[in-house]
């Protein structure tokens, strides 16, 4: 996999999972820092995006600081899974939806501006699917999200 990435691209991924410049021309700022030029840096990012390595360049918000959110799980019979998962994914309030190998086999994150919005979404999902939503909100987080430590081998 990594042989398709240039040394510059590896360097960008290692160095800019946090601290992406907030300057008016951030790619030019990065170019100055790594001894390149703006056009090459932008091309390197565009290529990462095209090849699927880059999900996005974006902000990661602190859980609980912007609106409200909670992890939730549901037990769905295998025969209904496709249909139920599709219904849940259609809610714009759902931003992750995973099938996992467990009795509780559907795991999703519900977001909303306020706690009341979450409650309304839970009620709507239960009404639409006929299954109970088990809420698994975060009580404490033990890891500061600093990005992901990729092993280059």
């Amino acid at each position: 996999m990594q042989e398709r990435l240039s040394p510059t691209q590896q360097q960008l991924i290692e160095a800019f999972q946090r601290g992406f410049p907030t300057t008016s021309r951030p790619f030019a700022t990065i170019a100055e820092q790594i001894g390149s030029d703006e056009g090459s840096v932008m091309a390197a990012f565009a290529d990462l995006k095209n090849k699927g390595y880059l999900a996005r360049i974006g902000a990661t918000y602190a859980t609980g600081r912007v609106g409200a959110s909670t992890l939730a799980a549901m037990e769905v019979p295998q025969s209904e899974l496709e249909k139920v998962a599709e219904k849940i994914s259609r809610f714009t309030e759902i931003n992750h939806n995973y099938e996992r190998e467990d009795k509780l086999n559907l795991w999703f994150v519900i977001t909303g501006a306020t706690r009341n919005d979450l409650v309304r979404t839970v009620e709507a999902i239960e009404a639409e699917t006929g299954h109970t939503v088990h809420l698994m909100p975060m009580i404490e987080h033990y890891r500061l999200d600093l990005g992901f430590n990729l092993q280059w081998n």
């Binding site: 800019f16 999972q17 946090r18 601290g19 907030t22 999900a55 902000a59 600081r65 999200d145």
Partner: peptide, 10 residues
């Protein structure tokens, strides 16, 4: 409120 701005790898 924002923890970081950066590359989010796939």
């Amino acid at each position: 409120v924002i923890r970081r701005i950066g590359i989010i790898p796939n």
